[in-house]
């Protein structure tokens, strides 16, 4: 019983993390914790095969899939905590509490019959026992499951497939488009300068400086802008930095009196 009492609180806390985590990645981590703990509980309850499958399928495949999608969508996209539907949270909490209480108190008690244990069923080995059942009485279900998996694969392919409605644009098309944009919208036709050009501080997170000394935001990668990690390229900020770099002794003397 020990693993249970150790794992149960952990699992509940991790599950609650799903409810309260602001970032989707944290929620995913919480779910992973619950799943691994479940695998251990399976093992503790005489289901070594499920233990393995839980680890491989759930924690290995499904959770990876989740994380993969999260990466595609944007790892740090965190949702606003403001509830949009009036009373949704209160009602959900109330209903959830009521449901949980009923289930825990009544259903939990109602099934309190003597435990038979799996020693006899697992006598020939757990995997062999499951296999006997799976390819015995449940063979039809296995067939259907196979069909289901194939359908799911096809569905995923169809869904993820991006139908291109227009012919692929050639280099000439792109060049023409660029010139048209320049003519009509005034968009600069050439490449943006790489970050750090002419800047005192040469790094990818600092915008290039134009000849008049103003920073060019477009020169920095969009993902860096998205994370808000751009360093200002304005003159005064740079000048401050330069001053600090140019007079290390002075700063040092003032700092620790060497």
């Amino acid at each position: 019983m020990t693993p249970f009492w150790i794992l149960a609180p952990v699992m509940v806390i991790a599950a609650l993390g799903l409810l309260f985590a602001r970032k989707a990645v944290h929620a995913a981590l919480g779910l992973a914790v619950v799943m691994i703990s479940l695998a251990i509980l399976y093992a503790a309850q005489g289901a070594p095969f499920l233990f393995a499958v839980q680890i491989i399928v759930y924690t290995g495949a499904i959770m990876m899939l989740f994380l993969f999608v999260l990466m595609l969508v944007g790892v740090d996209s965190s949702e606003s905590l403001r509830e949009t539907i009036a009373g949704q949270r209160v009602a959900a909490a109330a209903v959830g509490l009521a449901f949980g209480l009923v289930m825990v108190t009544v259903v939990g008690q109602a099934v309190a019959s003597p435990v038979t244990g799996l020693d006899q069923a697992n006598a020939n080995g757990n995997v062999e026992g499951l296999a006997a059942l799976m390819f015995g009485p449940y063979i039809l279900a296995v067939q259907f499951t196979a069909a289901l998996l194939i359908t799911a694969v096809l569905g995923a392919m169809v869904m993820a497939h991006h139908e291109s409605l227009l012919p692929k644009r050639s280099q000439a098309d792109l060049a023409r488009q660029r010139m048209r944009d320049y003519a009509e919208l005034g968009v600069h036709p050439g490449n943006a300068p790489t970050p750090g050009v002419f800047a005192r501080h040469n790094a990818v997170d600092t915008p290039a400086l134009l000849p008049d000394g103003s920073p060019l935001e477009e020169s920095v990668s969009e993902s860096i802008i998205g994370r808000g990690q751009v360093r200002s390229g304005y003159d005064d900020a740079v000048d401050d930095m330069v001053k600090r770099l140019e007079t290390p002794e002075q700063t040092d003397e003032d700092g620790d009196g060497k």
Binding site: Q88, A91, A92, G96, F99
Partner: peptide
């Protein structure tokens, strides 16, 4: 909102 309907269902 789907969540409203889900709440009712729950």
């Amino acid at each position: 909102y789907v969540r409203s309907y889900a709440l009712m269902m729950f």
